[in-house]
């Protein structure tokens, strides 16, 4: 059986988080960059914006273009005809974020300003 297979273990712990209706603000530059990155796959693919632990300040942003996930815990926001998803678990952390796009050789790309963050790290990828 081994030490990890006996009695007394709890069920998997579930994160209890506040769920809010998410609003996102994209700049024109960010919408154009997103359209380019979607590359015509708007019907089948979505942009998922999420937060996970890590980074210098406690949480890291993550952005992925993927096929629409089956998970029912997402909120969908349409931005210029592109579907953007935010998971309910991240909704209170990401509500109201402003997404811009900077075209610089160093540190360019999508940039997020988060009104919920008390602090952010220098590279802009981490907040807390």
């Amino acid at each position: 059986m081994g030490i990890l297979g006996g009695e007394g273990f709890s069920l998997p712990v579930v994160s209890e988080t506040e769920v809010v209706d998410v609003k996102l603000n994209f700049t024109e530059k960010a919408i154009r960059a997103l359209e380019q990155n979607m590359n015509g796959d708007e019907d089948t693919h979505v942009l998922v914006i999420s937060a996970q632990s890590g980074g210098c300040s406690g949480y890291l942003y993550d952005m992925k273009i993927i096929e629409r996930p089956e998970d029912e815990g997402f909120q969908q926001i349409s931005i210029g005809g592109i579907n953007v998803l935010v998971h309910n678990k991240d909704s209170s952390m990401l509500n109201g974020i402003q997404i811009d796009f900077k075209e610089t050789l160093m540190g360019g790309g999508f940039q997020i300003e988060n009104p919920n963050a008390d602090r952010a790290c220098g590279c802009g990828q981490s907040f807390g």
Partner: peptide, 11 residues
Amino acid sequence: RKTLIDGKSWD
């Protein structure tokens, strides 16, 4: 534990 579970990404 809360730090760990809150920081797990949706996927």
